[in-house]
Write a protein that binds this DNA or RNA. Structure first.
Lengths: 138, 138
DNA sequence: TCCTACGATGGACCAAGTCCAAGTCAATAC
DNA sequence: GTATTGACTTGGACTTGGTCCATCGTAGGA
């Protein structure tokens, strides 16, 4: 069953058919959908759902901390795997995305002298390269 | 004088008034302009310059490796400081950007077991937090 | 079951970026 | 200095990704 949906039940989040469908679409381990992809999949289950609702709900899930916003290309992608920290590896050829786990916390690599008085709270790393298929294809 | 312009002379790059102006606008140490900002500044010096030219030229500078594309927010920003590797620290309040230098090479932090057969060539890190002014403002 | 405030709708709107056919001009050759 | 030509520039239409807003619908409490 939907982990995300489960967690949302625990909060005082008004549950509607639309929100349920969006949460279901987003559920899983290696999901990195764009808003348009979410809309397409949600529409398959609930044809009257509107684009604005998808954007609203995604925005809300992001501010609840249940979903992470990833911008690797043109459109933002939404990653429901928010409960365990990770980074992203992106293929420059086909755009495929994998969740990866660096050996060291990237935040720790930034010395105080390089923080310029900022209160630094987050570091996001995007690794880029070619996936095996794209590398083979030349 | 313009470092960037200097380097471009060395290549067989057809020099036009438009390209010169764009290169001059982009020159400097901590420059992170959007395409629109580049257009605005270029227009001040060369009123007839067109938007398409700015985009074309920026794209070309990026593929020549003379300028780095940074996407920290809505619009892409262009950073001419391409000759020394660095990462970016962004204020979540006001959007200010600083070049920063982590202690360790971020690429080295990704173990082979987390590369999934990819040929990884690049790692870009975005640190986020509040700058002193935004932190003070609450 | 009724109320009401919160959520959903869709269509207009906006910002960033791309594309294209036609005109212009930098660099080379003479 | 002039002619040539292919690369560069132009502006306006178009696309994509996203936001806004007035209105309607409905989840959930009394």
């Amino acid at each position: 069953m939907s982990d995300l949906l489960e967690r949302l039940r625990g909060r005082d989040w008004r549950m509607t058919a639309q929100r349920r469908v969006i949460a279901e679409v987003l559920d899983g381990e290696h999901v990195h959908l764009t808003a348009d992809e979410v809309l397409a999949r949600a529409t398959a289950r609930l044809p009257e759902i509107s684009r604005a609702t998808v954007y609203n709900t995604l925005g809300e899930l992001v501010s609840l901390g249940e979903v992470i916003e990833v911008s690797t290309g043109r459109a933002k992608r939404y990653d429901p795997n928010a409960h365990h920290p990770h980074q992203h590896l992106v293929c420059s050829g086909c755009g495929a995305i994998r969740d990866v786990h660096p050996a060291a916390d990237p935040l720790a690599a930034l010395p105080a002298s390089e923080r310029f008085g900022f209160t630094v709270s987050e570091a996001s790393v995007t690794y880029r390269g070619l996936c095996p298929e794209c590398a083979a294809r030349g």
